[in-house]
Amino acid sequence: MSRRTFLQVSASGAITATVLGGAGFAGRAEAAGYDKSFTWISPRGTLEVLDDFPFWAGKKQGYFEGLDVEMQPGPSDGTATVKFVDVGQADMGFPSPGVFSFALQNGMKLKSVFHMGARDTFSLAFRKGQGTNDLKTLEGKTILLGSAAWQSIVDPMLFAQGVDVKKINYVEAGWPTWATALQAGQGDAALSWEGLRAEWIAKGLDFEYWLGVQHSKLPANTFVVRAADLEDPDKKAFLEKYLKGWAMGLQFGYLNPRAAVEAVFEQFPTLATNLGPELGTSSILEQINVFRGDMEKRGGWGWHDMSSWQDFFDVVYKLGQVSTQIKAEDVCTNELIAPANAYDKAEVQADADGYKLTDAFQKVDVEKIKAHMFDQAVK
């Protein structure tokens, strides 16, 4: 199958034979040496989430104007986001650090160029009254996952908290059913992440959480490309422009989170119906907290904290997830961060200030949501 045929994937992960492409995809991406439009691939098997709000908000505001780009859901297999980039069937992936380390261990020549998850987004969900902040008590118990590949996410998180991961029983409960399996009593905890907590509430799944944003110093998901693309001046220049669009979308969402939610809801009406303005805003505020991190200590949106990444690579080496020690500076780079953040701050501020919210979103109290953002945390 052609690249465009292969990447048309449903939310369930089923590959269909719809052929994309055509004249509409020709332009700057192709001129930069990419095969038609520049393709970003999700790690989740779906795009109908708020996680990618910087792109949808940025697209609405014109921050990607002139760039031939597309978003693809990818299969629900947790490692597809790196596999597709490695073989040239996508151009940028969004793996967790664990899946990134899987790629490196398996010889994929990838490099992290824009670190989205400055704080650890991952958490563990528990049924009400059964949560714990002492993760060592999970030894001998069962953690539910949506994909078996997610063990590479949970093992380092637990190991860093002093847990003997060999004593953890993992069960692949499937996407998107692993949360309902937890509610039904089929396990003791389940992997979750920021933004997803609000989505689960909308589905009647109200858990309590051990939150990585409160307890973990490990990094979260990042944007990776083929390392060779950074050696090509035209591709590198394209990446700088593309990532500038993401940085502007991130800043816009930080300044006006309700407007960013509206942009996503316009793209995915079913998600809007399922979540609504208040839970949608709750979800995006959780993610902005992760994406922004401590910006006073960062070099801008997407900046890698190499010490945090080195801590992670040291953990996965001790765990045996990688067979050789990885040096963070060899596989992560901040060389695109300054160009990505060299946008007109006043322009984005004006866009955020001038955006006219719908009546439904005007009624959402952002400060009230922020004040209760961590109410679900285990006390």
Rank of each mutant, 00 (worst) to 15 (best):
F6G: 00
Q8A: 14
V9C: 09
S12Q: 07
G13L: 10
G13D: 04
G13W: 04
I15G: 11
A17E: 14
T18M: 11
G21S: 07
A23M: 10
A23G: 10
S37W: 09
T39Q: 13
S42V: 01
R44M: 15
T46D: 09
V49E: 10
A57S: 04
G58I: 00
K60E: 15
E65M: 01
G66R: 04
L67D: 08
E70F: 05
E70N: 15
Q72T: 10
G74V: 06
A80C: 07
K83A: 10
V87R: 14
V87K: 12
M92N: 02
F94W: 12
P97L: 06
P97Q: 04
N106F: 01
G107N: 12
L110G: 03
R119A: 06
T121C: 12
F122W: 14
A125C: 10
R127E: 09
K128M: 08
Q130P: 04
Q130A: 15
E139N: 10
E139T: 08
G140P: 08
T142S: 05
P156M: 03
M157V: 12
M157T: 03
L158F: 13
F159C: 01
A160K: 07
Q161S: 14
V165R: 03
I168P: 02
I168L: 09
A173V: 03
A173D: 06
P176L: 11
T180P: 04
T180R: 14
A184W: 09
G187V: 00
A189I: 05
L191I: 14
R197M: 13
E208C: 02
W210I: 12
Q214N: 15
A220P: 01
A227Q: 15
D232Q: 06
D232W: 02
D234P: 01
Y242F: 15
K244H: 08
G249F: 03
Y254H: 04
N256D: 13
A263G: 00
V264W: 00
V264M: 05
L271R: 05
A272Y: 09
L275G: 02
L275C: 01
I284M: 01
Q287M: 15
E296H: 05
K297H: 13
R298K: 07
G299E: 15
M306I: 13
Q310D: 12
Q310G: 11
F313C: 09
F313T: 02
D314K: 08
Y317L: 09
K327I: 14
K327D: 14
D330T: 10
C332Q: 08
T333F: 11
T333V: 12
P339W: 03
P339N: 07
K345D: 14
E347A: 11
Y355R: 01
T358Y: 00
Q362W: 01
K363V: 02
V364Q: 01
Q376L: 07
V378L: 12
